[in-house]
Amino acid sequence: MNDFNYTRVYSMDEALANVSLGKGHRVIAGGTNLIDLMKYFITTADELVDINPISEHQTIEELPDGRLRLGAFATNADTAYHPLVESRYPLLNRAILAGASAQIRNMATNGGNLLQRTRCYYFYDINTPCNKREPGTGCSAINGYNRTMAIMGTSEHCIAVFPSDMCVALAALDAVVNIVGPEGTRQLPFADFHRLPGNTPHIDNNLMDNELISSIDLPEKGFSSSYSYLKLRDRNSYAFALVSVATALDLEHGLIKEARIALGGLAHKPWRVQEAEDFLKGKQASKTNFEAAADLILQGAKSFEFNAFKIELAKRAIVRNCMMALDPDTQQPGAQPSL
C-alpha cells in the first residue's frame, strides 16, 4: 500500500468534484476490495475519498411506482436482510448471502459489489503479465492454470471472471443502475453495466472515471414464488464460484410465463442468454425443457486446458437450479445444492 491522503466528503457533489480530479483520487466505501488491492499494490491512490459520511444513498426504499431502490452505499448485509428484499426479492437475498463472509457483507456496499475486480490468480500477482492489470503485457491465464477462468465471452486478451454473486441476481432481476456524473444522472440496464474483455480488459464496466453509482433499482416483479440461487465452488462457503446460477420463474398452471437464468463464475460479467429464456416461455417447467435451455445458454462456450468441466457443470447446475426454483424452500444455507 502506497502512502495517500485521506478526505471525507459529505455530499455527492463533493464526491464528484473529487473523483473528477483524476485517476489518483479513488473513492472508498466499504473498502473490502480496494484495501485488499492496495495492500497488494495492484491498485494505488494518491488520495482516498471516503464517501461513507454522505447521508444519501444509504437506504433501501420503495418507490411510488413499486420499484425498490437499493442505495449504493447501503451494505450488502443490510440489503439482503431488508424486509422488502427478503419478502419480494428472495433471490437477491440468497445471492448476497452466498457471497464472501458475514463480516465482509457487513462492510461491503452495493455500489462496491458492482465495481469489485476479478480474482484471477494472475491479476492478483503483480509479477506476472496481465492485460487487465497492465494492458499490453499479455494474458497469463489463457495458457496457465485456468480452472477458475471464463468459458463465455472471453477474448484472446483476457479470460477472467467477474466474482460477484449479488450481481448475478441483479442481472436476473433486470435491475437498473443509477449513475451520477458531472453532466447529471443517467441509467444503465444491468446487462449493459459490465463489459466483456474484448481488447480492453482493463475496463471492467461502463462507469466513467468521473461518475459514481448512486443506487440500483429493482423492477416491482420480484419472482418471490419460484426462484433459486445455486453456487458451486471448491468449499461449501467463503469461496468464489466456479459456477453459480440465479433462476427466477413466473409460473402459471405449471407453464412458464417468464424465465430468467443468469450465471456467475463463467464470464467477465453475469451471463444471460435471451434465446434460452424465450425458449422456455409457455413451456412446461420440466427437467427436459430446462436441459434444452441449458444447452442454448452454453452453446457458445469455449473452454481452456483446466476448465472444460465448467461447461458440463454449468449445464447441470442450470437444470438443478431451475428444479430447485420450483420448490424454493429446499434451498440450503450457502446456496449449496439440495433436492
Binding site: 485521506y6 473498502g31 473490502t32 484495501i35 485488499d36 458475514a102 463480516q103 457487513n106 462492510m107
Partner: peptide, 13 residues
C-alpha cells in the same frame, strides 16, 4: 454493533 474485519478498514475511516 456489527462484526467487521479490521484489516480491511482504515483507522481514519
Amino acid at each position: 454493533g456489527k462484526r467487521i474485519l479490521s484489516c480491511l478498514t482504515l483507522a481514519v475511516m
